[in-house]
Amino acid sequence: MSTSADPADHAHSDAATASRVAKARRLAAYAWSRDIGSAELLALPAATLRKLARAAETNPPSTGETWRVVADLLDRKDAWAARNPDHAAAVRAHADEKLLWVKPPITPWSDNS
C-alpha cells in the first residue's frame, strides 16, 4: 500500500506522469523548432538543459527521465515531418537559433604550408 509520504510513489503516479508528459511536450516543441535533434539534446550538459528549459518557459526537469521523453518526442516529430514535409507544422520556425544551444565541432587549424 502506498502513502503520500513516499516520494517514489508520487514520481510515478498518474498525475506526475501527466505532468512529465506535458512538460516534455513543451520542451520538445521548443527544441524541435530550433532544429535540435534527440542525440544533440541528450548530449547537452545539465547547465545548458536547464537554460533551455527556462528559455522554453518551463521549470527544468529534476530528472533525466523527462529529457528522455523529450528525446523520444523529437524523434517522433522528425519522423512525422519527414512524412509530411509540406505541412506547416513541419517547418522549424527558429532553426537559426540552434547555434545558441548546440555548438558545432571546432575544426582544428591545419598547417599545410
Rank of each mutant, 00 (worst) to 15 (best):
I36S: 12
T17A: 12
E65K: 15
A15H: 08
H94Y: 15
E40A: 09
A71H: 04
D9C: 08
R25K: 09
P105K: 11
R76N: 13
S2Q: 00
S62L: 00
P60W: 00
P45V: 06
A88T: 04
S110P: 01
K51E: 15
T3K: 10
D9S: 10
P45Y: 01
P85V: 08
D75A: 14
L49K: 10
V102M: 05
E65G: 14
T66W: 12
I106V: 08
H12R: 13
A15E: 08
T63E: 12
L41T: 04
L41I: 10
H10M: 02
D35P: 00
A15W: 05
P105R: 09
A29M: 11
R26V: 05
D9A: 14
A8P: 00
S19R: 08
W109A: 13
V21F: 11
N112G: 00
E57P: 02
R26N: 07
K51P: 01
D78Q: 06
P108A: 14
D78S: 05
D75G: 13
P105W: 07
W80T: 06
A79W: 05
A56V: 11
S62H: 07
S19E: 06
S38R: 13
V21T: 15
S38D: 14
A28M: 04
P105L: 11
A24F: 00
E65Y: 04
H94C: 12
I36G: 14
A39M: 09
S19K: 09
D14M: 00
D96N: 12
A82G: 14
A28S: 08
T3Q: 06
A95S: 15
V102R: 08
A47L: 01
E40G: 06
V21N: 07
D72M: 03
T58H: 09
A88V: 05
D111Q: 03
W32M: 07
P104E: 03
A18G: 04
R54F: 13
K51Y: 08
V102E: 07
E40V: 09
A93K: 07
S2A: 08
R50F: 02
A22S: 13
W101D: 04
H94Q: 15
A89R: 06
K23L: 02
A82L: 15
V91A: 03
S113V: 03
D75P: 12
N84W: 02
L27E: 05
T58E: 15
K51H: 14
